[in-house]
Design a binder for these strands. Sequence first.
DNA 1: TCCTACATTGGACAAAGTCTAAGTCAAGAA
DNA 2: TTCTTGACTTAGACTTTGTCCAATGTAGGA
Lengths: 139, 139
Amino acid sequence: MSDLLERLRGRGWRLTAQRRVVAEVLDGDHVHYTADEVHALASDRLPEISRATVYNTLGELVSLGEVIEVSTDGRAKRYDPNAHHDHQHLVCSQCGTIRDVHLQGDPLSALPEPERYGFQVSEVTVTYRGICPHCSAPS
Amino acid sequence: MSDLLERLRGRGWRLTAQRRVVAEVLDGDHVHYTADEVHALASDRLPEISRATVYNTLGELVSLGEVIEVSTDGRAKRYDPNAHHDHQHLVCSQCGTIRDVHLQGDPLSALPEPERYGFQVSEVTVTYRGICPHCSAPS
DNA sequence: TCCTACATTGGACAAAGTCTAAGTCAAGAA
DNA sequence: TTCTTGACTTAGACTTTGTCCAATGTAGGA
């Protein structure tokens, strides 16, 4: 994670306590927090951090390509720090759990030329939905 | 569209002016309105229709499987009446235009068994993003 | 035509996110 | 080290999107 901070500083990012804390919260794989969750976790370490700063910082990390914004349910967006490994998401329709998954083949190739309608297609996101083992287990 | 109304009546739907108007607004292919847009268009024909009714009706149409809910941008959900033809979406990153597209092959098969983590996967949505011809044209 | 269960309404409420003006501070300059 | 300044942060108002509820209206069967 300190690589991340170094990389950002190299791009002219001013390194503040708030930004550091947000980056630390997002450290780790398979993390998919909402902005509110990031704010709550960041507040544990830096109680005076404001919501606006969390939103600002997340937005910056997204536009710098260090974090991916995921909206799986039409509710709060989630932030995925696993931005340097191409992957998609598998979501439990019941509890909302999210897993990163890796596909066979390139989903871009499933869209034939005549179905592109002259668009310059550059990105594809695939979301699988189903019931996770925990939710389908007899209770 | 009157097939739709007949079908719904067959399922015990009470046919009111409000519901008819909402269904009429959603008539047509390649329509992807937000709830607010549906409300505005419905109000043109039936000025006293309330937002709550539009939300209720859209929700019912979705749970009856007659309309699909699409959230392409993490902002307002859009409602797609093209529910009986399997398709995915192509979105312009600049202007937000949405097109229905048809894929080659089944995207479910791109997710190998070991990548399913015990989920019972039942659904997949694929969203392509790019620049539409109108936005990429020299202005 | 009358009944009544279901539908609609308007407004309050809630969740998620954006904006702004005023104050603070990281990091380069001296 | 201290100073300076423009970038960063803050609190809270505001916006957008959507949900809920109690009161009122009405579709369609008897």
